[in-house]
Design a protein around this nucleic acid. Structure first.
Ligand code: MN
Ligand code: MN
Ligand code: MN
Ligand code: MN
Lengths: 224, 224
DNA sequence: AAGATAGTTTAGGTAAGCCTAAAAATCTAA
DNA sequence: TTAGATTTTTAGGCTTACCTAAACTATCTT
């Protein structure tokens, strides 16, 4: 008798997607949004939602969108924990760049062994944030949510420290890296253009660069 | 357009099983042997063998058993490399015992990223042997085969060093551990019972213990 | 309030990887 | 050398996770 996993890889990916989309659709995540995020078709999403509802991982009423149950949220957070710990491992121990780790972690996150992930956590020194500044849930599923102030919210002459990114695309992360915009770096807004909301900033009290609104609204900041 | 892996997890497991069974059935590995090793049914094996033959990973003639092609052997060895490197990681970095790592490595071995596995290899210091004494293939697929002399082959008063195990079961590994029979340990045969081929040995020039033939023929030795 | 449109579900189908039961091939041993 | 046993293959089914096309529901526009 082989012990089969409680949740399939697909189920875990759906739960994680619903969890991620919940803040912007708290009244119910739509079929289409899930389909877009998982690069699949709406009909497939409806299929899977029914299975998740049968397993009591989501609450679902036709045409009303979907919400995680407590149990579903637990699975999503546990998957996030694994994803972020593996990302941290890849960057800190195997010297990957922060734009190279997401895809590999998409696979590693589905290795389900509590012993494994807790030992990895200890081996890494119980890190609080992943390489993109996202908080790593602890083994009891506690997740300190990000503050949501971005560079775009700063006024002229205000400064802050980079603590995370909202856009995890390789293109964006590479762009940040070439401009020295890494976690922990100090930024000060010295000018804001009205017409396109682009900002001129000083990076680390040294270089002066200018960022589009799209770039600045994806950079999470702790105000100083 | 998602890039889908060249070989499925199932395909990799079949290729690994065929590779492992080849030494004892060089003229062709039988359907039943594969089924037993993978804990599946003969009919399922026939299905998969056909798929592998279509992909030119094995040569197959009905009722004649199956042999790996060069390409198939490459995939098998690459999977072994991953399996053994992850086992080494689990024992050396996460402090698992040697009897606890196999199952987890069964999953980790299917994460297919050359960059990942080569960086892991470097991080671990390019180990040559896994926690069970099995050789780890290098990145070009070179695999130094084990010598096959076991404790059972030693004559009275001969001694050797433990370099591996043939039986990887948790029961056997735990038994060895409680008797101090670990890799690198010195053993000397001081008596052999004719009637049941059990041996009395001295472990590490200290403890005297007695081993059944079943126990001694699964312990790989380098003669001194 | 009705029709157009956008979003969602259903219907029906596919491929992978497994299964049981039955048929066919091969091996073994008298 | 041939009957019986064993092994292997085939036939037909199942589940998961996808898909397209068509039908349905909800929402927006006039
Ligand atoms: Mn994933
Ligand atoms: Mn991340
Ligand atoms: Mn495996
Ligand atoms: Mn091993």
């Amino acid at each position: 008798m082989e012990k089969s996993p409680l949740h399939s890889i697909s189920e875990e990916n759906y739960l994680k997607a619903i969890f991620a989309l919940t803040p912007t659709s708290p009244s119910g995540v739509s079929t289409n949004d899930i389909a877009k995020r998982l690069d699949t078709k709406a009909a497939s999403v409806t299929d899977m939602i029914k299975k998740l509802a049968d397993k009591k991982l989501v609450n679902y009423k036709k045409y009303q969108g979907v919400k995680l149950t407590n149990e579903g949220r637990k699975v999503a957070i546990s998957t996030l924990r694994k994803h972020r710990l593996w990302e941290y491992f890849l960057v800190e121990k195997l010297h990957f760049k922060w734009d190279e780790v997401h895809e590999i972690a998409e696979y590693l996150e589905h290795i389900n062994s509590d012993v494994l992930i807790n030992r990895l956590d200890d081996f890494l020194g119980n890190p609080e944030f992943d390489p993109h500044g996202d908080p790593i849930p602890d083994k009891d599923g506690n997740l300190t949510p990000h503050q949501n102030i971005t560079l775009n919210d700063l006024q002229k002459d205000e400064s802050g420290v980079i603590v995370g990114v909202k856009d995890h695309s390789s293109a964006y992360l590479k762009f940040l890296e070439t401009n020295g915009l890494l976690l922990g770096i100090n930024v000060k807004v010295i000018d804001i253009q009205e017409f396109d909301e682009s900002v001129k900033i000083i990076v680390n009290q040294q270089n002066e660069i200018s960022l589009s609104q799209k770039a600045s609204k994806n950079l999470i900041i702790r105000k100083l």
